[in-house]
Design a protein around this nucleic acid. Structure first.
Lengths: 207, 207
DNA sequence: TTGAAAAATTAACAGTGTTAAGTAATTTTA
DNA sequence: TAAAATTACTTAACACTGTTAATTTTTCAA
């Protein structure tokens, strides 16, 4: 059956066109400007056609959120060669902060907006693979550091949440303008860096 | 001039009606259901009248966000009697977490949504008094703990941002469903509590 | 070529924030 | 007290939004 196969391929192509158009709008104009009608304009189909390929707007954002994780994963390639788990943890934090501050729109759909998670809930295969993988890597690093006596011990899961919480908190407060009136703009990145630094030092097994 | 005075009073009354209606909608139906038309329905004026008292919707949310801070401040009354600064810091964190998890809608406008901060930027008196006060209290506590040799030292400002970052990160990841697929729902609050616990222990000057 | 299935469209619903222009009420001035 | 000016408020509309039902067009097999 070569025909249904080709049709399947065509369907996937239009799906891709929709996602590409969404990404283009997302990158160039930001979250709020990704509208069904603008997507339709770009792919030169009617707005309703979009709904033949995606259940709703959230499902589109779910796929954009995936691409955000791909970029963050790419950035984390520089961790591979770091032997010292505490140093690796620090570098991971640095990568995360850098990613968030430089890609606030991506960061938004990955960790702040409800939409992508709503779409995830409605899927058949509803594991949050990307979040799960990222957290696992973090936990493994923390576990290693604790095992080697380089880090103040605690429930690995909870500590991982704490570390993630800290970097997420810093990024999200920054990109949602909560530091703007409290710290001079030019000092914010340095301050955030220092905060991470302090956590790693404080949590490290100092003598 | 008793007339202009009375008129001024009437204007303030309608302003209050708008804010009360907004709050009612906000509490009972949530952020998304606070619409100009619904506010107008409640106060029995036309939608455009709202714009005679507030520049735009963000300005209304700015005032709701203030009320959120009032509630959080109220919750923090229980800190007054705590002498030990580390204990006070821990309790502060606990209060913050409790407030955020129990009042996700309030938390949203206080620390996540752009709207209130946008409104703040456009004010003449554009200090973020509430955030400023809260951060000052946090900094004072941290400073005291460091002075008394109870806490691992560092730049007070940066450490304060880190501590705030951690609790904010935990709350915002939780209320934006980022833990849902990673940790069983019933374990989330306990895990968050443990994360705070770990931070305070790790940062405390253990021997 | 006909008929069924699939793909895409038109038109509409039910909303959103916001503004320009016009009306009604009130106060000030002559 | 009547006219003018100011203030308060409303109507109507603009330019959008996501989404759906109904309809048309296209494609493909019998």
């Amino acid at each position: 059956m070569g025909i249904t196969e080709r049709k399947e391929k065509q369907k996937l192509e239009i799906r891709k066109m929709i996602l590409d158009a969404s990404m283009k709008l997302f990158i160039e104009e930001g979250y709020d400007h990704v509208t069904i009608r603008k997507i339709a304009d770009i792919i030169e189909y009617s707005p309703t056609t979009v709904y033949l390929y995606f259940k709703d707007k959230d499902e589109i954002f779910y796929h954009l959120h995936e691409q955000g994780f791909a970029r963050l994963t790419e950035l984390n390639q520089n961790l591979a060669g770091i032997e010292n788990p505490m140093l690796r943890l620090y570098k991971m934090g640095e990568n995360y902060l850098e990613f968030g501050l430089k890609n606030p729109e991506y960061y938004d759909i990955m960790f702040i907006q409800h939409g992508p998670m709503k779409a995830l809930m409605e899927r058949e295969e509803c594991d949050w693979t990307y979040g799960d993988t990222a957290l696992s890597v973090l936990k493994a690093t923390i576990d290693e550091a604790m095992q080697k006596g380089m880090m103040y011990k605690g429930n690995v899961e909870a500590v991982a949440m704490g570390v993630w919480g800290l970097v997420h908190g810093l990024v999200s407060l920054a990109i949602r303008d909560r530091f703007d009136k409290l710290v001079p703009a030019e000092q914010i990145p340095g301050m955030i860096e220092q905060a991470l630094n302090w956590l790693v030092s404080a949590a490290g097994n100092r003598v």
